[in-house]
Nucleic acid binder design. Structure first.
Lengths: 330, 330
DNA sequence: GCGACAAATGTAAACGTTTTCATTGAGAAA
DNA sequence: TTTCTCAATGAAAACGTTTACATTTGTCGC
């Protein structure tokens, strides 16, 4: 790869002048500009983003970090798509880090991201108490949280109203006449799980339908959905409806219900948090709480780029609406 | 962030010595080593991967590129997971580039990746004739192709036997007695689409069942599945079975079939290329050709890391098996 | 015709590492 | 004692940029 030095030599100027035309930062004679542009073309010169990043901390080095707990979850894939679209438009590249809800791995990735001198970070932290992330924010790195916030520190957040979304879903089950409504939760250390549980309880307690034995906690994975749904169905007095805490749990629970040849919603109804674009092709078409995942990613990307150019801007917490998509699983 | 210089000062040594203990590359006195390690701890020093990458092209800078056409396709998500697992184990970070099957975008990303001085690249190129990627390979960057190969150049490839997979699926339809078997293809510029079409034709021609009007070409997206499936069903003499070229097309076609209240497989059968972990929860449980996507990613990651440490190793083309998962959609 | 100013360009330091080469000192061999 | 070897360390260059500062012109006002 040709360097700026070679371009300068070929054009018969100094590297400073080359840099000037590249960033058109300063006045340079039209004839030399043309000479330089020609040399760049001839040599197929491409500036090194690495050198740029090393040299100028102030100026954008055009690299963003994205830190998510589970790339297998279609919700995060859509968030990522939203981020990526904005990043591409602004000439940013993305370092993608998938930490699998493993705190050790998350810390390692945070270290790597810092070490890569990224311009900014979009993260769904392992917990709202994430010390490492908080200290990175305090050090001045622009950060936007998605889906999960942080406590004890001011930070941009984009998420949905989890409690209201869950409340709407479970209220719908109650209105439909279900009496024993179970909840398969994710990790209680994840704030969104807790908020969804809160909405679930609030909807039930109105009508005194809350039954502690019908709440199961897992690790938010597909497998946890499979297992915990089986546990629920094995109960001497099983639930007549199940509310699942996320995408993967929903799919896992469906798997179990189908394996046992139970009819949905006749034998047991199900409503999930997180919609999927193929939800209407599931058996049966799934009633689900839709988060605008792509939009969340897009907004987060925009906020981040704003913050990079204006670090002083006050923090924004953007709560988007979750919408109940009623289909036929309840 | 503390730099090596500050560590050196605090430990009362030169940066050379600090570098030596960090890479334990050379003999250094035990007492000074301890002093330095303490200084590193005190200052929470973390080496800059950027400076490292700039300085030593020879030594690994621990950054990999991944270039994929569509992150929304669950197949690529699983490939990515496989890559990521291997990368993490080897202390590599990943720059993820999703080019949306857009050649312009792909070229821009390839430029960025080069400019970022990545150590190696895993790519599913836009076409088998991808000039930019070929020239990058010629320049000596370690590259492994996944899912799609390149012609006219020797390169590591990990993929499945697309033709055989398609052949098995369509043969199964033939054996089940279907006579008018349609194919919703992806972009013909994508090699895997063509190989799958080849398998489809071969399976039909055996029994003279091939009907050109039942082959539709799209852009491999969900929407193309929706639209082209509608076109097929609108035919005066519609197909009694449909074979779909990938994940997203399958889901799109299902959407259309359900919207029209057609029964699967009574009114029309469907078999898809690409399995999903929730296939058995679809309506009906989907018969599909399973690619070992995670395994593909893992193998590609391993091959890449091998190649980085030994650029001379002869190229390998690894063909994994595609397996027909028979459920109840045909 | 002279000082002032602006346009155009160059020089060199800096970013944070790795790495080559040189230097020091101590112990061993002669 | 002298010389040699080797362990331990430092000095400085290099990677490819940006940028502060310096220098050289030419033009303009007077």
């Amino acid at each position: 790869m040709a360097s700026m030095n070679e371009v300068a030599k070929r054009a018969g100027v100094s590297i400073a002048t080359v840099s000037r035309v590249l960033n058109n930062s300063d006045s340079v004679n039209e004839t030399t500009r043309i000479k330089i542009l020609k040399a760049i073309k001839d040599l197929k010169y491409q500036p090194s983003r690495v050198a740029k990043r090393l040299r100028s901390k102030s100026v954008s080095s055009n690299l963003l970090g994205v830190l998510i707990p589970d790339i297998q979850n279609p919700f995060y894939v859509d968030v990522l798509r939203g981020i990526e679209d904005i990043a591409y438009k602004n000439n940013y590249a993305i370092i993608m880090c998938n930490y699998g809800q493993d705190e050790k791995k998350e810390i390692m990735y945070l270290d790597i991201l810092q070490s890569e001198s990224i311009d900014g970070l979009i993260a769904a932290p392992v917990s709202e108490n994430d010390q490492r992330l908080k200290s990175i924010i305090k050090n001045g790195l622009p950060v936007v949280c998605v889906d999960r916030g942080l406590i004890g520190i001011d930070v941009d957040i984009v998420w949905v109203n989890n409690e209201e979304g869950a409340f709407a879903a479970v209220s719908h089950l109650v209105k439909s006449g279900y009496k024993r409504i179970a909840f398969i939760s994710g990790l209680p250390s994840i704030p969104s799980s807790r908020m969804r549980e809160k909405g679930y309880r609030r909807a039930l307690e109105k009508d005194q339908l809350f039954l502690p034995e019908l709440v199961k906690y897992g690790n938010s994975s597909y497998d946890s959905g499979v297992t915990l749904c089986a546990e629920l169905l094995d109960l001497p007095n099983p639930p007549d409806a199940i509310f699942t805490c996320n995408n993967l749990i929903t799919l896992g629970a469906l798997e179990t219900i189908h394996k046992r040849k139970k009819q949905i919603p006749k034998d047991v109804a199900i409503v999930g948090f997180d919609d999927m674009f193929w939800s209407s092709s599931l058996n049966p078409p799934l009633t689900a709480v839709r988060q605008p995942a792509y939009e969340i990613g897009k907004r987060a990307g925009e906020l981040l780029i704003q913050r990079i150019s204006d670090p002083q801007r006050p923090c924004i917490q953007m709560t988007l609406n979750a919408e109940l998509m009623i289909r036929s699983s309840c």
